[in-house]
């Protein structure tokens, strides 16, 4: 029986979709069988981030309404052998096209076939959130080190509790070590202290994410990307490995950091 994980945040644009794509790809790289569900009905994005937009025939709503079998609707990502699949969101419908109960049934049935089912949650706290969370066994909350994002994350943590989803864990995204050093950005400890939840991982702000999204290739596929490395670490933590949070130096890390990078040292 697989595990269903919802990736959520409250606020939009903090990196839920990027995180879903990269953790999914990271778990698939590690040999796990993974399905990604884009639960952002009406604003489908996971397909383009993954580079699979040209292969969509059926979507989540088609499956829930019985117009397509799950097996037929799932898009196989050929870069990951038989390990990674995407169930895209419907683009021309809205959140009310599916109910939390339907989502729960769908996710439950998928857990029989996959080691991990990752659900990319839409922004907001309304029905889209309730749908995305319904079938999940655990929640991962993504937040950036900014007041608005932390506030929304706090609200989401409260709502997860209300939905009986206990012990969510936190991914801090888009950390900029040089700003943290100057005291102009909250650091990991500040975030954990305020939100009072467990830390799952830290992802640096990385220009390569933009490049990877341009190309439709998850960053975990690139061994040079710091964000890619962070996401690979997160995937391994989800598999139960004990991997320390990577040390974030300044972007270029001075001459020392560059040297270490050249020597291929792990950050």
């Amino acid at each position: 029986m697989g595990e269903a994980i919802v990736i959520t945040s409250g606020k939009g644009g903090v990196g839920k979709t990027t995180t879903t794509a990269n953790i999914g790809a990271g778990l698939a790289q590690a040999g796990k069988k993974v399905a990604l569900i884009d639960a952002d009905i009406g604003l489908r994005n996971l397909d383009v981030v993954m580079g699979l937009e040209n292969r969509i025939v059926y979507d989540l709503v088609d499956v829930v309404e019985g117009q397509a079998k799950l097996k037929v609707a799932l898009i196989k990502d050929k870069r990951f052998n038989e390990n990674l699949f995407l169930l895209p969101a419907a683009q021309t419908r809205d959140k009310t096209a599916v109910s939390p109960a339907q989502m729960r049934d769908l996710v439950d049935s998928m857990k029989g076939e996959f080691d991990f089912v990752l659900i990319d949650c839409p922004a907001g706290i309304e029905q889209g959130f309730k749908n995305a969370v319904a079938g999940s066994d655990r929640a991962v909350v993504v937040a950036t080190p900014e007041v608005s994002s932390v506030r929304d994350a706090d609200r989401i943590i409260g709502l997860l509790e209300a939905e009986e989803k206990h012990n969510p864990s936190l991914i801090v995204n888009r950390i900029r070590p040089s700003m943290v050093k100057k005291g102009d950005m909250m650091d990991i400890n500040d975030m954990i202290e305020i939100l009072a939840i467990d830390l799952l991982g830290v992802v640096p702000d990385d220009e390569f994410i933009v490049v990877s999204t341009n190309r439709g290739e998850p960053a975990v596929l690139n061994t040079q990307s710091r964000a890619g490395e962070a996401y690979r670490n997160i995937a391994r933590r989800l598999l139960g490995e004990n991997i320390p949070v990577m040390k974030l130096e300044e972007e270029n890390g001075g001459i020392f950091g560059r040297l270490k990078k050249m020597l291929g040292a792990k950050g």
Partner: peptide
Amino acid sequence: ASKEVAKERLRLVLFHDR
């Protein structure tokens, strides 16, 4: 440092939110 301002503001905002 602006992060101290951020933390103080968050403390108050979350206080009311929670």
